[in-house]
């Protein structure tokens, strides 16, 4: 995994479908309200559950900030990272964990579930997510190697200027 600035994270239909299947299952089995996946840079990958009244973009950005800040704390005390964060509210709680070493899994749940159940189910789902993201990385690397052209290879100055008109 390089982290050069030119690298791009790619998501395809097939993998997204698989990810959403794992999320739906986790949502059911953990009795959760919402589940979303965010990349460590704060970009929302996908969400399932009761998301209609949620500002998922802001949630994604703040979650990544949260993980980044606690990751910084971890390093200060000699830990690699804190792989699980839990925020307890009066009604709703947030369980945040890192899956596959690179993606943030967020589970929002209320009194219909419990921390123990969520932890258990998240642990199980993490392996499934991890496998999908590993396959995804391989697929993207292969496409890169094969020289599949970027959909943006053909963009023109006019295309870009039009965005701002």
């Amino acid at each position: 995994m390089s982290s050069s600035h030119s690298s791009t994270f790619v998501m395809y239909d097939e993998e997204l479908r698989k990810i959403n299947m794992v999320s739906e299952k986790l949502l059911r089995e953990a009795n959760a309200k919402v589940i979303f996946l965010v990349d460590k840079n704060g970009q929302l990958i996908t969400s399932v559950g009761e998301t209609e009244h949620l500002d998922t973009t802001s949630l994604a950005s703040l979650t990544a900030g949260n993980i980044a800040a606690t990751g910084g704390l971890a390093k200060l005390i000699g830990e690699k990272e804190f792989s699980i964060l839990f925020h307890e509210g009066e009604k709703d709680n947030i369980h945040i964990s890192i899956v596959g070493g690179r993606v943030i899994l967020v589970v929002i749940f209320d009194t219909r579930s419990s921390l123990g159940l969520v932890r258990l189910r998240v642990k199980k789902a993490s392996d499934d997510y991890g496998q999908i993201f590993e396959d995804l990385a391989k697929k993207a690397a292969q496409e890169d190697k094969d020289g599949v052209p970027s959909p943006f290879a053909e963009i023109t100055d006019d295309d870009i200027d039009n965005l701002f008109s």
């Binding site: 982290s3 791009t8 994270f9 790619v10 697929k139 993207a140 094969d146 970027s150 870009i160």
Partner: peptide, 27 residues
């Protein structure tokens, strides 16, 4: 303000134009 934003956005899109479809590297 918008001139600045537009300029950096343009440079980013030009950078994307150079890149491949994959890349895939995360984290």
């Amino acid at each position: 303000v918008f001139e600045t934003l537009k300029a950096v956005a343009k440079l980013i899109l030009m950078e994307l134009k150079k890149g491949g479809a994959g890349g895939g590297a995360m984290g």
